[in-house]
Amino acid sequence: MRELLIAEMKGKIPTKLQNSEDLLTSSVIGTFRYLSSSTYIQSVLESSMNIKGRRLLFDTPIKKCLFEFWPRLDDSEPDVLLRLIDANDHEYLLCIEAKFWSDKSSEEDTTIDVEERKNWQRDQLAREIETIHTVDCHKFMKVNQEKLKRIMFVYLTNDTYLHFKEIKESISFVKDIDFSIDHIYWLSWKQIFNVINSVSHFQTPQDAMLLTDLGRLLRKKGLVSFNGFHNMQHVYPYVNRYQYENAHKHYLWSEMKAVDKTIWSYGGKYNG
């Protein structure tokens, strides 16, 4: 996993793959699979929110998290399925649909009778929400039905804001199951960076190494949040030496006049 992160950071991945959401999903979410504790993925998931502005919260710490990437299920292939088990032994089934630059892979084709619609004519999120409620999916994830507390859906995107309309639209096309819109959450890639950035204590040196590399990858891809003007790494030497106030005084045009004008004059001999 770490080698893949380094290859991406160092630009050793073919250009056509650099904007791949599958690769990003694998690199980012995949990293959490190899960490020593589920608290990291719990923190990431808990930074997502639903359309009412409520955070996704678990009642108790997550002690175990099982990851399945692109499971081939009957009607869909979600990006990531997570089976989470908390300290009280309650289970949660959570689906992550990740987007980078693209939108939903399919939208509901309402021109076709609802019973006649093929998978590719269905709203992608609605289809996946239905899938994670099926017995087959639960069997695949070895969910203990008696301990299953909640099923949730996380829409992971590169958006800066929550697309309320899109979420409402998807939930309106979910059929045959009772699924509250409150259980659809939105998460932005940059919030994963925030979570990593806020970790004050890594549980193992390996966790520190993997998450530091992951943070670098997210930074390289621009999937970051504002972290103060002092953190502009490329200009550290400049910012440290010149505060903006000083810089401004320094660059007054009156100062610039001290530069030999003739060197800068346009027009050569025609300029006298």
């Binding site: 502005g53 800066t160 970051v224």
Partner: peptide, 15 residues
């Protein structure tokens, strides 16, 4: 621009 992006996200919480 990062500030404005974050304001988008933070304001989403309040609809």
């Amino acid at each position: 621009i990062l500030i404005l992006r974050d304001l988008d996200t933070l304001l989403s919480k309040y609809s």
